[in-house]
Amino acid sequence: MRHGRMLVRQPEPAIYDGQMTDAIPNGTAPTGSAPGTAQITRELAQRLVEQVAPSLVHNVNIMDAGGVIIGSLDAARIGTLHDGARDAAVRGEAVHIAPGDEHQGTRPGVNIPLIVDGQVVAVVGVTGIPAEVLPVAQVLVLTVQMLLSQERQRDNASWRESAIRDILGALARGNLTESRLMAGLRGIDAPLQPPWNLTGIVAENQSVALLRGLREFTGVVAADINGAVWVLSGSSSALGHELLRQRLQRSGEPPLRFLIGRVGATMQQLASDAERLGALLARPGLLELVDVGSETRLDALGLELAIAGLPTAMIEDLAESVLAPLSAALNETARVFLQAELSIAGAARELGVHRNTLVQRLDRIELLTGLNLRQFHAAVRMRVALAADAARYVHDAQ
């Protein structure tokens, strides 16, 4: 013990255990590595100080493992060396600085090391007479440990979501064999088994709620990619998929759009479904052609997928060559008429117009484009043009 500076062993510091491992082996690791030993950045230290300081009458500082102040309500002290904190970090023990023993960079108080995974990651300091602030400092260390644990859990959750996104992205690019897919899933503690199913759920502004709800399900992993929630299911069966869809559909408001890959798929089929889903989501206007609240099989969207895979210039030409002469009202009339299976009565009802008005619009469309939409081949050409028009918008890749 030195004069005025007493070393006190910190009672039973909390030590965290368990670390996540990289999710996908062989060069397809997720963005960033799995969180290991906790680290306290300046931003986190300052946030922790601001969280706990209002409930105390004493000043609180957080120092890094080298004794440099990284969190304090006194902005002038941030970035300066605290000799007592450095001693505490080196020794792994609490350091008391008595009145009269302080010098440049230190003030009377208690400095207790924060130990995580057997390493000092920071030092928590409370200013005041050591005998008075020691109980406060000990409670404060436990509080900071709890807050750090919460931050770490959030980091782990963010890393896992990023890892899942990378796994599904690699799947869509055709970069995964089944063995590597399963190894990657084991790396995030999701040991799914074939057969597979991939489902895309399109729900505006509901991704966070959907992902939260999907955590309750075993046998699935999910991530938000290109504006949709991708759900990969293992041990896929028709019954399991139907139960999952029903529960999610009940939770969706407004109703959800389900883009369904093959149930009980092989690895080759799964990879194909992932590629199809990625292509459709890259041109999200195409999804507006899918009814809200519906369940649509990916392999039933052949025309949309064919359009999605065309060069942008060709898509533009397919749309403009037919739709350029049409007004917005005539464009909408053509779209609704085709969706109504060429039913004049059904389309008129959907548009809220008289049958004669609809017939006049169809005649006007034929005059401007040369396409009589009541005939099969003309209807197909218009359908292609409308799909190309919907595909013009390209989603920013995530």
Results as ranks from 00 to 15, higher is better:
A23C: 06
E275P: 07
Q193D: 15
V141Y: 07
A274K: 02
V90Q: 15
A65L: 13
F217P: 11
I260Q: 15
A122I: 01
M267R: 10
A53F: 03
L185A: 05
V336G: 00
V8N: 07
Q39N: 06
A228E: 00
G302Y: 04
E178Q: 10
P195H: 10
E304M: 06
T333K: 00
P194E: 02
Q375C: 03
G370W: 01
A274R: 03
A14N: 11
D166V: 01
L134Y: 14
I201K: 07
G92S: 02
L368T: 00
T333E: 01
I78M: 07
A131W: 04
V95M: 08
A131C: 09
R247Y: 02
E350M: 13
V139I: 09
A274H: 08
A347D: 07
L310A: 07
F217Y: 11
S72F: 08
D299A: 10
A238S: 11
V136Q: 13
V141A: 13
S55M: 08
L211Q: 01
A348H: 01
V322E: 14
A387I: 00
Q145T: 05
I164S: 10
P254F: 05
G109H: 00
L198C: 11
G67F: 13
G67I: 12
S233Y: 00
R297L: 07
D189L: 09
I129D: 15
S294R: 01
Q39M: 09
H96C: 09
A172K: 13
T199C: 04
L56P: 05
Q119V: 09
F337R: 00
P135Q: 03
V221H: 06
L239N: 07
L44M: 02
L142W: 00
T333G: 01
D291P: 14
V120L: 01
H377S: 13
L362A: 02
G227E: 05
L256P: 01
R245L: 15
W159R: 04
E242L: 05
M1F: 03
D224R: 11
T80Q: 15
E350T: 14
V394S: 07
T127D: 06
L210R: 13
I112T: 07
E316C: 07
Y393N: 11
L277G: 08
A334G: 11
G227M: 03
L214I: 02
T177F: 01
Q339R: 12
N197H: 11
N356M: 11
L244M: 09
A88N: 01
L7H: 14
I167G: 06
P13S: 12
L318D: 04
L114F: 05
D317H: 13
A29W: 02
